[in-house]
């Protein structure tokens, strides 16, 4: 139990995927322009990351390891993620059209979101149990979402600012992310696994 809580705390605040680990920077830069889209993307990422970790953990533990095929993890995992995203898209469209309207446009973006790939790889590499893996994925995706939402708030304000022309857009966003990364360093070493 203590370990699970530690995982949550660490991967949201201490070892944030965006600010300290550089996973998912592309969508972080891409969809943090507006609060609504940031929240939509966050929900999609939380959903897919958790589900993908569940699926890959099962495949890895019960298919790849028994057959000594762990070197196939990259190919398998990316396939699983890609298919999963498609699957979610289809199911969502059928079951909840309103949710699909909200999340749908973000789903294709997730396939190439390296945060998803990173989370499934790290779950395996850190030898987490199934429950730990899922909690880890949840925490990591929540950390990603937090970064995205904070950034969206800041960028909405920056829309109204007189930022030097050369720095407009991604440059100032990166610098902002850098300062955020600095700020979150305050939590450094607070908990270890």
């Amino acid at each position: 139990m203590e370990k699970l809580l530690s995982i949550i705390f660490i991967y949201i605040l201490v070892d944030n995927f965006v600010f300290q680990r550089f996973f998912g920077i592309c969508p972080f830069l891409g969809v943090s322009r507006k609060m609504e889209t940031a929240i939509g993307m966050s929900m999609a990422v939380v959903f897919v990351m958790t589900l993908a970790t569940l699926a890959t953990w099962l495949i890895y533990t019960f298919v790849l390891v028994p057959f000594n095929l762990s070197y196939l993890q990259i190919v398998t995992f990316i396939l699983v993620i890609a298919s999963l995203v498609q699957l979610v898209e289809i199911i969502l469209r059928k079951i909840s059209p309103t949710l699909y309207q909200g999340l749908g446009i973000f789903l294709p973006l997730i396939t190439t979101n390296c945060a998803v790939m990173a989370v499934v790889l790290l779950a395996v590499r850190q030898e987490f149990s199934l429950l730990e893996s899922v909690i880890f994925a949840l925490a990591a995706s929540l950390g990603f979402s937090m970064a995205l939402v904070i950034m969206a708030g800041i960028r909405e304000r920056q829309e109204l600012a007189k930022i030097p022309a050369a720095l407009k857009g991604s440059a100032v966003t990166l610098i902002t992310a850098g300062i955020l990364s600095l700020a979150f360093l305050g939590f450094k070493g607070m908990l270890t696994l």
């Binding site: 600010f19 300290q20 680990r21 550089f22 030097p164 022309a165 050369a166 720095l167 991604s170 440059a171 100032v172 966003t173 990166l174 610098i175 902002t176 992310a177 850098g178 300062i179 990364s181 600095l182 360093l185």
Partner: peptide, 16 residues
Amino acid sequence: PAGAFIALGLLLGMVN
């Protein structure tokens, strides 16, 4: 990490 972000941001500005 923080420095990576800041350096890249400034570099991007310069390149622009």
